[in-house]
Computed example of a mutant assay.
Amino acid sequence: MAEISMSKARSIIRATLKKGREMELKPLSVVVLDAGGHVKAFEREDGASPGRFEIARGKAYGVVMTGMSGSALHARAEAQAYFVTALNGAYDGKVIPVPGGILIRDKQGRVMGAVGVTGDTSDNDAIAGMAGVESAGLVGEA
């Protein structure tokens, strides 16, 4: 299993927050999970609501556990709500199937983890998160 380093996780967060400021987004919260769904790093900007950690983690957790991007998981939820309901039950309610969850792969295509971004619209969250992943020289699937 490919490992995401602490340095890469922090780099992803810094670049995601920078992109959010460039886009003039609402305050963001960003989490990076490893390939097993464990937290590597998290930051919540000043002004972001305190509950944003769970939302960011839920977006990232869903994509890393299913191997699907946030947008693909969202489409699946719309097309097959029963499947995502059952999936969420299997994962103790930890999955938030909306954009802003980005699967992270290395250049060889191995899953390294996921980033979850929350604070603005889900689509804007995904754009900022993709910028963070790409800035770290990794491949993202939003």
Rank of each mutant, 00 (worst) to 15 (best):
F83P: 01
R57I: 07
K107F: 09
M6C: 08
V84D: 02
G132R: 03
A77M: 02
G37D: 10
L28Y: 05
T85V: 12
G62K: 00
K19M: 14
P97C: 05
L73Q: 07
D46H: 07
Q80Y: 07
G47A: 06
A126S: 15
F53L: 15
T85N: 15
H38S: 15
E78L: 11
G140Y: 08
I102G: 00
I55P: 13
G67D: 12
A81Y: 01
G70F: 06
I55W: 10
A131Y: 00
E3M: 08
A41Q: 14
L25V: 07
V95R: 04
T16D: 03
K19N: 09
K8P: 03
Y82F: 15
H38K: 15
A41Y: 01
R105S: 09
V30D: 04
G101W: 05
G101M: 11
P97D: 06
N124F: 05
E141W: 10
G51W: 15
G113K: 04
A60W: 02
A81Q: 09
V64S: 10
E43D: 12
I127P: 05
D106Y: 11
V117N: 09
T66M: 00
Y82W: 14
G113E: 01
A9K: 03
L103E: 04
A77K: 04
A48L: 13
S29N: 12
G109C: 07
A72Y: 02
S7W: 07
R52E: 12
A41R: 14
I96M: 07
V30Y: 08
L138I: 13
G47N: 11
N124E: 10
K107N: 13
F53H: 13
S49Q: 13
P99T: 12
R57N: 14
A41L: 11
G36C: 08
P97S: 05
R21P: 12
V95D: 08
V63L: 03
E43C: 06
M130P: 08
I102N: 06
L138Q: 07
L87R: 00
A56L: 04
A56Y: 02
V32R: 03
V98G: 05
T121A: 11
F83R: 11
G62S: 12
H38N: 14
Q108F: 12
L33N: 07
G119Q: 05
S69K: 07
A35F: 15
L73V: 09
R76G: 01
Q80N: 14
L73S: 02
I55M: 14
N124L: 13
Q80F: 08
M6P: 10
A56R: 03
V133E: 03
S122C: 13
A48Q: 11
L73K: 03
P99D: 09
A56N: 06
A136H: 08
I104D: 01
K18D: 15
Y82C: 07
D125R: 02
A56G: 10
V84I: 08
I12M: 11
P50A: 10
G89T: 15
R57T: 02
D123R: 13
V31T: 07
M130H: 07
I96F: 15
L87K: 01
E134Y: 04
D106Q: 00
S11I: 00
T118E: 01
F53D: 12
F53Q: 12
E54I: 06
S49C: 13
M6I: 04
G20P: 06
M23K: 01
K26D: 10
P50C: 05
A2M: 08
